[in-house]
């Protein structure tokens, strides 16, 4: 099935080469067509569908558990956001995302992004995709864009499932913010949209790391495992108090920095810094992936 997109890449690359003007016009369209076929492949793979289903299932489990056993009492000192879920279903989105962003979302993103180049190399389909040397940068761009689309889909799956479960199982209505004020339901849904975009940006930064690993190996599992391993190690480093100086430079430190949307007025400072960190990671690891991918010998 990878050969289908490979043929397209070849035909576009060779067809446009003699006519630079035509290429400039046709390039974005060809790029989009290539992306479309990549995205189609990604979302048709049973493995990826299963991962999305698992991600969507977690909010259901949390919701049912909270509904059955009630929220944590104030004496237990659990995360207060769980207590708020029972009062307002919309909080389930924040609770679910803040849990899943720690490990399950990164794993799903690492699988897709880590597999993107190494998987093709392992199957031997990569050389068909790379018939035109000028196409390598574009191919890498498409692979990365595809991973980002999957990030958005995974985060949106969690958010939509939480919204649905939250509204079905718990009362929904005006949201009480952390600062004690209340905002209308629609405003709350908009703020959830902001959180979805922020978490997607965080996952896109991880996808860049996974893509860089993916260009360095022909064994997809190696790229996936090293990405997940890195996430775990960095998270462990992040909780050691003696190393707190390095925390602002760690990717994982910023992933759940979205609680600013629940304040009044909305605190954007931390999220802005988080986005800068994500952009820095995307730039560094994206350029590493590019240097490695455009310079490497494709032998299989």
């Amino acid at each position: 099935m990878s050969t289908v997109s490979g043929q397209e890449a070849v035909s576009v690359g060779t067809g446009a080469a003699p006519l630079p003007g035509a290429r400039a016009v046709g390039a974005p369209r060809a790029w989009l067509r290539l992306l479309g076929s990549e995205v189609g492949l990604t979302f048709r793979r049973p493995r990826n569908i299963a991962m999305l289903a698992v991600l969507a299932l977690v909010p259901v489990l949390i919701g049912v558990a909270l509904r059955t056993f009630g929220g944590p009492g104030e004496t237990e000192g659990g995360p207060s956001v769980f207590g708020q879920v029972t009062g307002n279903g919309l909080f389930l989105t924040f609770a679910a995302l803040s849990i899943l962003v720690q490990l399950l979302l990164p794993v799903a993103v690492a699988v897709v992004a880590g597999d993107s180049v190494a998987g093709e190399a392992g199957l031997g389909t990569l050389r068909y995709l790379l018939a035109a040397p000028a196409g390598r940068t574009r191919l890498l761009g498409v692979k990365y864009a595809n991973a980002v689309v999957f990030c958005l889909a995974a985060v949106a799956a969690v958010a939509l499932s939480s919204l649905l479960v939250g509204v079905l199982l718990f009362p929904a209505g005006p949201i009480t913010l952390l600062s004690g004020g209340t905002i209308p339901l629609l405003d709350g849904v908009l703020r959830i949209g902001v959180v979805v975009l922020y978490v997607t940006a965080g996952m896109a930064a991880l996808a860049a790391v996974a893509l860089a690993f993916s260009t360095m190996t022909e064994v997809a599992v190696g790229a996936i495992a090293s990405t997940v391993g890195l996430v775990v190690v960095v998270q462990v480093l992040g909780v050691i108090p003696q190393l707190s100086v390095f925390q602002p430079y760690l990717l994982t430190h910023w992933w759940n920095g979205f609680d600013g949307v629940l304040r009044d007025p909305m605190a954007t400072g931390e999220m802005g810094q988080g986005l800068l960190v994500f952009a820095a990671y995307i730039a560094v690891f994206g350029s590493i992936a590019w240097a490695r991918f455009t310079g490497k010998d494709i032998t299989c």
Binding site: A283, V284, I288, W290, A291, T294, G295
Partner: peptide, 15 residues
């Protein structure tokens, strides 16, 4: 290839 690897090095320096 050496020139290519200059790009990530430059990016790291920029960050």
């Amino acid at each position: 290839r050496a020139v290519r690897w200059g790009v990530p090095i430059a990016t790291v320096a920029l960050v």
